[in-house]
């Protein structure tokens, strides 16, 4: 029992070290080299985001990390309230953008916000897609779903594609 536990502990420690290593192999700007985006992975595998490469393309952290590692929340409408606000310490998208923006809990929280600020904040999935797609469309980057996402078997079943594609054309639909 004990040796097994020790092995497990060692294993976990090793995995931890490897993870740490992936962060150590970071971009010169201090951001992580690779970021695994797996919060919402179900129909597609987790996206391995090459953060270091994008740092080189974007140049400025604020291009993607608005309000955070970037230029604070001083611009435009935000300045009405946040002109004097200190720089946010939040860096990751998921720390502000909710994975379940329309759950009953979230809707209740929005309803309690009597000033109705930040009620139209995009969820995590939209934040990712707007950020990536917005830039890719303008800069000629890849924009197809599977250019970034590897669809798994669950995804094939969901989209009725690949092995789950319709065998023969079904009877014509009525319109």
């Amino acid at each position: 029992m004990r040796p097994t536990l020790l092995l497990h502990t060692l294993g976990i420690a090793l995995i931890g070290l490897l993870c740490a290593a992936s962060v150590v192999a970071a971009a010169p700007t201090g951001g992580p080299g690779q970021v695994k985006l797996d919060r919402l992975a179900s129909l597609f595998d987790a996206v391995s985001f090459d953060h270091a490469a994008h740092v080189e393309i974007a140049g400025d952290c604020a291009s993607c990390h608005h309000h955070t590692t970037g230029d604070g929340a001083g611009g435009g409408r935000c300045a009405r309230c946040h002109a004097q606000s200190p720089k946010s310490t939040v860096v990751a998208c998921r720390d502000c953008h909710d994975a379940d923006p329309f759950s009953a809990v979230q809707l209740e929280r929005k309803a309690d916000d009597r000033w109705q600020y930040h009620v139209d904040k995009p969820g995590l999935k939209a934040a990712y897609h707007w950020n990536c797609l917005g830039c890719h469309e303008n800069s000629g980057g890849p924009t197809g779903c599977e250019d970034c996402h590897t669809r798994n078997a669950a995804g094939d079943a969901f989209y009725k594609s690949g092995a789950f594609a319709p065998k023969a054309a079904a009877s014509a639909s009525h319109h």
């Binding site: 009953a104 139209d120 999935k125 939209a126």
Partner: peptide, 26 residues
């Protein structure tokens, strides 16, 4: 109290779910 399936799957949040009166405000 859950959003419809189409709203939940939308990658772009082209669909925003909530009370109708709040949707008008937004």
């Amino acid at each position: 109290g859950r959003p419809p399936a189409c709203v939940e799957i939308c990658p772009q949040q082209a669909l925003t779910f909530g009370k109708r009166k709040d949707m008008i405000k937004i």
